[in-house]
Design a protein around this nucleic acid. Structure first.
Lengths: 262, 262
DNA sequence: TCTTGCACCTCCCGTGGCGGCAGGTCCTAC
DNA sequence: GTAGGACCTGCCGCCACGGGAGGTGCAAGA
């Protein structure tokens, strides 16, 4: 066609079919200078040489590995004299893949948990579920990724059984304190003092070996509680029947006073 | 400030600090109607209520799970009356996570292989390595994802040892054929006929149970060889010393004639 | 000769989820 | 009076193209 068939190389359409790259993408690569066909025909049509097509295959391969077009351009520009740069680029990309795989795995797990909750219909009320969602985000806001990492690993190490047991014991303590609040037990009573001591030992198995990390986590927890008493209380009271949404703040205040009385 | 502190809710700056969402993002959410602050002050400043902030936290949580802002908008709009839609959304997202994790794992493995090759300095010449890259892309162009899947699984099932053994045997056959080409052995000689028979049995362990799939893979392979003789030959001759870049096409032609002679 | 049709060209707008800047307003504190 | 900070709107930029409009060049059929 056009008598171009005597010209060497291939038209853009032929190249597109051969390589599986869309024509639009070929235009784009030409535009940004990544793969420029060596020549044009008299009528202005692009002619790709064998070396152009080879370059295209290289670009495609590197793209598959998630490199940006800019990275590919610099890599192909200097890769002829050092393979080391390419190696480093690959290594960096590999590290990123692995990091994102880790993130994806964590998110998958969380999602699975949420789906399970929804399936178990443990949360019939959509509002309750949305509150859970809020808490997820609040949690992310107050704890750094590193802290979440530490906590998640700790929980995993201890196992679900232990975590559940801790939860139950904490709830028992809350229930006991609730009774004492209602009874107006004085804060220096030995009974509540013992309860407060048990309260403090609850977190011990979750502590990390680094005391400073513990302090930071405690500070974050305190800030979270300070700023989001209401949401947390609602969340907890959704889980147990004997707790009204505004009980927990009162109880926590009482516990604090008991601790200070020591 | 501005005497706004008597107005209920929070300014955009305060919300940004509390939630960790940038002000620009808050503007964006307002613009697209995803989170509109309930009111404005007389001077036009945004005031976020507690319910606005709750909505923000929900949005953040859903974003973390990779939902698009549009999906979040529809989810939050109707989630109050059906949690099922949300559950399905999560399930779909989970499936996507898992698919992308699979892709990432495959790419990681390929990258690791390439890095290993580079580290082993088995490829001192950058040009050789770039040819390898080309071949990766060519391979992708000629085989569909499904076919690659089948081949990869087959290789994994057989184990590296077997694959390596096949490679070695194939190279031996090539070497034998090369000798016959040079000697000018006629194509109906029993010796070369036997070699061709062995050649054909080589691929048998890699065949999938579905004969049509095998045919398609064979066709793809033929097309690849037809269009990329030179690259493949260069690639193979890079790996062994006794093979010149233009030997392989001649050998393959000879093998073809031997087969047809039967 | 006219039409139809195809391959190709350039130019330009759109995507998602914001980042960032310019230039203005509003209010407080020194 | 002015310096500064928080806030406002409007607009351009990113990345890797997708897609469409509107034009050109050429061949084959009616």
């Amino acid at each position: 066609m056009y008598g171009d068939d005597v010209a060497p190389g291939w038209s853009i359409g032929e190249v597109s079919r051969r390589t599986g790259i869309t024509i639009r993408t070929l235009y784009h690569y030409d535009e940004i200078g990544l793969v420029r066909p060596a020549q044009r025909t008299a009528s202005g049509h692009r002619r790709y040489t064998a070396s152009d097509v080879r370059r295209l295959y290289r670009v495609r391969a590197l793209r598959r590995f998630g490199l940006s077009l800019e990275e590919i351009a610099t890599a192909l520009a200097r890769s002829s004299d050092d393979v080391v740069a390419l190696r480093d680029l690959f290594a960096a990309q590999l590290a990123e893949f692995e990091a994102s795989a880790l993130r994806a795995a964590r998110l998958s797990e969380q999602l699975r948990g949420l789906i399970e909750q929804l399936d178990a219909a443990a949360m019939p009320d959509p509002e309750q579920f949305l509150t859970t969602l809020e808490m997820i985000s609040v949690y992310e806001t107050y704890f750094t990724e590193e802290q979440r990492e530490v906590l998640a690993r700790r929980r995993a190490d201890l196992g679900e059984q232990v975590v559940e047991a801790t939860k139950m014991e904490w709830l028992e303590l809350v229930r006991a304190f609730k009774q004492h609040v209602e009874d107006g037990t004085p804060v220096d009573d030995p009974a509540v003092r013992d309860l407060a001591a048990r309260w403090e030992t609850l977190g011990v198995p979750y502590a990390s070996p680094d005391p400073q990390a513990n302090d930071r986590i405690a500070a974050s927890t305190a800030a979270l509680w300070r700023d989001h008493k209401d949401e947390v209380s609602r969340g907890v009271s959704n889980q147990v029947e004997w707790l009204a949404p505004d009980d927990l703040p009162k109880i926590m205040e009482y516990v604090d006073r008991v601790r200070q009385a020591r």
